Amino acid sequence: MRPSGLVSEVPRLDATDHLCWVYDDDASFDQAVERFLSGGLARGERLLCVGDEVVDRMRGDAAPIPGVPALVASGALDMLTVADAYQAAGEFTPERQFEFYEKRTRQAIDDGYTGLRVVAELSALAADTGRRAELVRWEHVADGFMASGSGMTAMCAYRGDLPADALADVASVHPLVRAPDGTPSFRVFFDEDRVVVAGDVDTFGADRLAALLASSPVGPERAVLDLGPVEFVDVAAARVLARWARALQARSVAVEIRGASPLFGRMWRVLGLGDLVPVTFGQRAG
């Protein structure tokens, strides 16, 4: 099982981890970047910093880690502003971003590094309501890429003064989150062959859950949804899950739900969802 949950400090991350770090000020941001990048150097990973804020600080007199010029000269560290990243990857879409980071990760491994460690400060994209949906979809696709054992690990940083809905959107697609209390109420991420939902899912988050599930890559024949880490799910959320399963079944994709509580199993039956959407319940369903 991938590490997941709410954290108060940057944990020791392995090659499949994906952390959302909501920061309060420059000092706390620098501390998080130092711990994250130092961990990558210790693991023999190539470092990549993306975003105007983090690049400015890495190039400043008080960079979060020592020896930045030497790291850049050796190829152990690369830095891209948002404009540079767009120029390198093309128009911002999840598909183009995937191609860009897959190539960067493969190149790092081919060059003898153990993987690619990325810190990306993307507050400007999260604040842009016209681009936020694509950003969230990319974060979700990226999580699947990291969970697959690609060799890429990432810390995605966002300012704490962003609107609450923006923070909830971006944080909800990370297994590991440092964010204000109550943000997000639930998370959707990947672990091996399954989509995992964790936290509390209710009417207020039903639309967000529907959007995330719709963008979740699944196998061509079978999808597994793990509700083991869910603490609460209401009727609206159950109906979202049923609609997602029905859409997959229309594509001849079988759906298995694992880890559902006995209460969820009873609610599924009482609502008649099992008659509309025949799914397989794994361990713990009642």
Rank of each mutant, 00 (worst) to 15 (best):
R106Q: 14
Y101M: 07
E121R: 03
K103P: 07
T153G: 04
A198I: 01
V136A: 14
M155W: 01
L116D: 12
R117T: 11
A168T: 15
H174S: 01
A126H: 12
A157N: 04
D110Q: 12
P163L: 01
A108W: 08
T203M: 07
V141P: 05
R132N: 02
L213Q: 02
A164W: 03
L167G: 06
G144I: 07
L162E: 06
R178Q: 12
T203K: 07
S150G: 07
A206G: 12
V170E: 05
A133Q: 11
V197L: 15
D128I: 04
G199K: 02
V141N: 07
A179N: 09
T153W: 01
E102P: 01
S172K: 04
M152L: 14
S216V: 05
T203Q: 05
R178C: 13
S148H: 10
H140D: 04
A126I: 09
A164F: 01
T129P: 02
A211L: 13
D161Y: 09
D191Y: 08
A211Q: 12
V196Q: 01
S215P: 04
T129Q: 10
A164Y: 02
G149S: 04
L162I: 11
D110S: 11
A171N: 03
R104F: 11
G115R: 08
A166K: 10
D165P: 09
L125A: 08
V119K: 00
R117Y: 00
A154L: 05
D169P: 07
M146S: 10
R131L: 12
S123Q: 08
